[in-house]
Design a protein around this nucleic acid. Structure first.
Length: 585
RNA sequence: GGUCCUGUGGUGUAGCGGUUAACAUGCCAGUCUGUCACACUGGAGAUCGCGGGUUCAAAUCCCGUCAGGACCGCCA
């Protein structure tokens, strides 16, 4: 149907007879002269209709987003457009077919569209015509293609695992699918292929991967959709180093193949506890400083009531030194803007001190002794003009608040280089974390994570003290991938379930198939899973996950294009043995 | 479950107690031989998300509701 795409023709093609197709991006009708910008996924080529061209009237009747097929001869333009790759040439059209017409679009089909996201999602097929989204979809394809290329080369097999599967306790809320053949029984959509990939290891496939759709029925965010995609990898008969090494080489391959960027390996490693203490988070952005400094010991004997009571109830005092920040942030900036940022995470306040020639000054200074201020200045390495920001609270609150504030400050101070990819491993995770609300231990990674065998006794006495063979890959303050070595011994797995408070009967009901498989010689194994969507976001430089998914859901889980979720016919419910409950409106 | 922001011609915004509801863009018609965000002239186009309330009077204030967005909780 066509001979070239719309970003193919250049000055050297002048004189050639070609056929082009595409959407009408724009028509410029000068009366005796008509120009049409023809757009496809590759770019734009200008069609020209001179005053003596019999097609001129037909061309001037053409509207935006019509689909055209134009045949003619490439010619050099008499006035060139240096902003357009094909700007030296145009097509002198001698045959023009309108393949389809188009109504007036509800939005401008251009990168600089002014339409709200709501409008864009309602007409997503139009939104996707925009070069920006075309490029992001191509990037997504390039990343999955590079992934397959690399892993195939490394001897991995690509698998598909069930979408209709079984609900498992622990973790996120499941999406549930009613079974027609077994009334009042339900499938669940997988939160990840975790158990199936472990069973494939048991089956003797030593290297597995899958570009896997995962489903979690939890609230949405700008980087979270109810269905998302993982690059899921599992290997047997390996140690942790093998997984990290493979992952680093995969990332390096993807970066090179998609963006032409060389990344340095191996990636730096930060132990989990160090990440929390220095950055307040397990996914630190290491592209800038502003690290958290613990001052609890400096104020151990303080008379300052706020600090004193926090320390007495086992809390912490930590601070960030904003170098040169004293002049940059006014008292009002701190007490309104910055304080509201830490308040989101439950911090009751944000104290500040300015470093001046005579020492630390600020509203909080008068509650502190000279020694405390001097020690603080020294610990914080405060120089004249610096601003110290303090939060005193429960350690979780301090870390969450200052960890977030750190990112906010870096943004305000323009400390972040968007072209730096600070791939970092977070290693040495604890196996469990105590959950105050539920009053029990929860797996920090997941309940199938392996730990050193010699810690079996610790597991029974002090579960929180057990270290796990877990690892997360972090870059630009985002968790990109996470994984672990898995438990391959049934007894060890039962111990973990026990520590999590899952009773024997429930273990059997929910995980019996796994426990059984572990009893039939499952080889030691481990793996990792990438959040593909977040990877595309990072490489595509967008902070909106909807930009990297062709048909995403809104924050309330609607698909504005199809109207899902929607009603079903009574007969459909009937077949399933389900009835609607009257719920109050 | 919670906090905050936003719904006004096709699209994006302004207006924030009395307006002929304004502007830009798109759309329609006309003029125009080198445009490329073509230019110029004219024109059509709005139940101000929905429901209720306050008021002599509501796009504007209040309550509710629906929709979109950001965030907290949640997301092993």
């Amino acid at each position: 149907m066509k001979t070239h795409h719309n970003n193919a023709l250049r000055i050297e093609h002048v004189g050639e007879r070609v056929v082009l197709t595409g959407f009408v991006a724009r028509r410029r009708d000068l009366g005796n002269l008509v120009f049409i910008d023809l757009r496809d996924g590759e770019g734009i080529t200008q069609l020209a209709f001179d005053s003596d061209n019999p097609l001129k009237d037909k061309a001037s009747a053409i509207k935006s987003e019509y689909v055209l097929r134009a045949e003619g001869v490439v010619r050099e333009r008499s006035s060139k457009n240096p902003d357009l790759p094909s700007g030296d040439i145009e097509l002198d059209v001698d045959a023009l077919d309108v393949l389809n017409t188009a109504k007036q679009p509800p939005m401008l089909i251009r990168d600089e569209t002014d339409a709200l996201e709501e409008t864009r999602l309602r007409h997503r097929y139009l939104d996707l015509r925009r070069p920006r989204l075309q490029a992001l979809m191509k990037l997504r394809h390039s990343i999955t293609a590079a992934t397959r290329e690399f892993l195939n080369q490394e001897g991995f097999l690509e698998f598909e695992t069930p979408i209709l599967t079984k609900s498992t306790p622990e973790g996120a809320r499941d999406y549930i699918v009613p079974s027609r053949l077994h009334k009042h029984s339900f499938y669940a959509l997988p939160q990840s292929p975790q158990l199936f990939k472990q069973l494939l290891m048991s089956a003797g496939f030593e290297r597995y991967y899958q570009i896997a759709r995962c489903f979690r029925d939890e609230d949405l965010r700008s980087d979270r959709q109810p269905e998302f995609t993982q690059i899921d990898i599992e290997m047997s008969l390996i140690d942790q180093e093998a997984v990290l090494d493979l992952t680093e080489r995969l990332v390096a391959h993807i970066m090179k193949a998609t963006r032409g960027i060389e990344v340095k390996t191996p990636f730096p490693r930060i132990p989990y506890h160090e990440a929390l203490s220095r950055y307040g988070t397990d996914k630190p952005d290491t592209r800038f400083g502003l690290e958290l400094v613990d001052l609890s010991d400096v104020f151990a004997q303080t008379d300052f009531k706020v600090f004193h009571s926090v320390l007495e109830s086992d809390g912490r005092i930590k601070a960030i030194n904003v170098e040169g920040g004293a002049a940059r942030f006014s008292r009002k900036d701190i007490e309104k803007d910055l304080t509201s940022e830490v308040a989101k995470y439950g911090a009751k306040g944000l104290l500040f001190l300015r470093a001046e020639a005579e020492g630390l000054k600020g509203p909080a200074a008068k509650f502190s002794t000279e020694e405390e201020l001097t020690a603080t200045a020294a610990r914080m390495e405060a120089g004249e003009g610096d601003l110290l920001l303090f939060v005193a609270d429960r350690v979780q609150t301090v870390n969450a608040a200052l960890g977030h504030l750190r990112n906010v400050l870096a943004g305000k101070l323009d400390l972040i280089d968007a072209d730096t990819f600070d791939y970092t491993w977070i290693v040495e995770w604890p196996l469990f974390e105590y959950d105050e609300d539920e009053g029990r231990y929860l797996a920090l990674h997941h309940p199938f994570t392996r730990f050193p065998e010699k810690e079996l006794d610790t597991l029974k006495e002090d579960p929180a003290a057990v270290g796990a063979f877990g690892y997360d890959l972090v870059a630009q303050g985002q968790e990109l991938a996470g994984g672990s070595l898995r438990i391959h011994n049934a007894e060890m797995q039962r111990e973990v379930f026990r520590a999590l408070g899952i009773e024997e009967a429930r273990q059997q009901e929910r995980f019996g198939f796994l426990l059984e498989a572990l009893e039939y010689g499952t080889p030691p194994h481990g793996g990792i899973a990438f959040g593909l969507d977040r990877f595309v976001m990072m490489l595509g430089k967008t902070d909106n996950i909807r930009d990297v998914i062709p048909f995403p859901k809104t924050q309330s889980g609607h698909c504005l294009l199809t109207g899902a979720p929607g009603d079903v016919d009574a007969s459909q419910l009937n077949e399933l043995g389900l009835k609607k409950d009257k719920h109050e409106k």
